[in-house]
Every structure is written in C-alpha cells, then in structure tokens.
Amino acid sequence: MQFSTQLEEKFHRLAQHYPVKRSALVPMLLFAQDEYGFLSKEIIAEISRRMDLTVLDVEGTISYYSMLRTKPAGRFHLQICTNISCMLRGGDKLFDHAKTKLGIGNGEVTPDGLFSLEEVECIGACAWAPAIQVNYDFHHELTPERLDQLIDEIQRVSRV
C-alpha cells in the first residue's frame, strides 16, 4: 500500500537513525496509527514487508504496547487516568462522569465516531491530577465541570 508523503518522509528519517532496521518498528507503527487512526491489516502487512518481519512478529509487538490499536478509536480519544495520584484527586469520578456524559463505556466509541474513552494508567501528570489526555494533549487538574466544557468545545469546533 501507499503511505502519505509525510509518513514516508518520517519513515525515511527513522530508517537513518538505527544500525538495525527493526529498531524503527515501534515508532513506525505509532506514526502510522497517528495518521490512519488504527493499524489495519493492510498497514501491518506493509510494515512487516518493509521491515523483513513476519506479520506474526509485528502483531506480537503491536499487541504488547497499550497505545497501539488494531481497531479504530474516536477522532478524539479521551484517556482518563485513574491511577493512584489521580484517584486520590477524583480521577475515578471523572472517568464515571465521562462515561455518563458520552454515553459509552471503557474502550468504546461514540456512534458518531467523534469520541472514544479509555481508562488509562499513569500518564505522568501526577502533580496536576486529575489529568487526562485527548489524543496527545494533556488536560490537567480537571473537574467534571471542566471536562464537560472540554467535550462541549470539541463538539462545537468539530461541527463547524
């Protein structure tokens, strides 16, 4: 399959960084996922081919890393940390609130494909808990109210 020019460029740059080809695998998978939303069978086959690896090898690698997925997520993937520091500051409550607000459970996608929700482990924002990530963007010291605002804002902007 054809990848976009910018992804090809990224792959090309990555390839220069390592003396061993396979080292680029995890970044390649993550960058491909960033662009296509998830790692489809076609993407996996293509990357396996380029890396001289078996599909099984690549699938084994993908399934090890929690950020890599083989099914689509929402355009905005809400990752709510409920680990100890966030829990102590209400992360669980925030997660429950998000479930109600979006009407979906953990690992699910809203029918319009706009949001998906995931309870995640520590994302490294413990001093600013509770924290979430929307795709790669951090949002710190959230309250249910501020989460509502954030979701509403995303909905508003994406409708335009």
């Binding site: 061993v20 080292s23 695998l25 995890v26 998978l29 690698t61 929690s66 950020m67």
Partner: peptide, 19 residues
C-alpha cells in the same frame, strides 16, 4: 508506545530494538 515495563532497562533496550 505504552508499556510501563519498558522503563526497566533491559526491556527498554528490547523495545528500542523494535521488539
């Protein structure tokens, strides 16, 4: 790409080797 275990030094090296 999301794995606490990769903070362990030898696991990190495996991961850096694409495994």
């Amino acid at each position: 790409a999301g794995a606490y275990e990769c903070g362990e030094e030898s696991a990190l090296l495996e991961s850096l080797e694409g495994k």
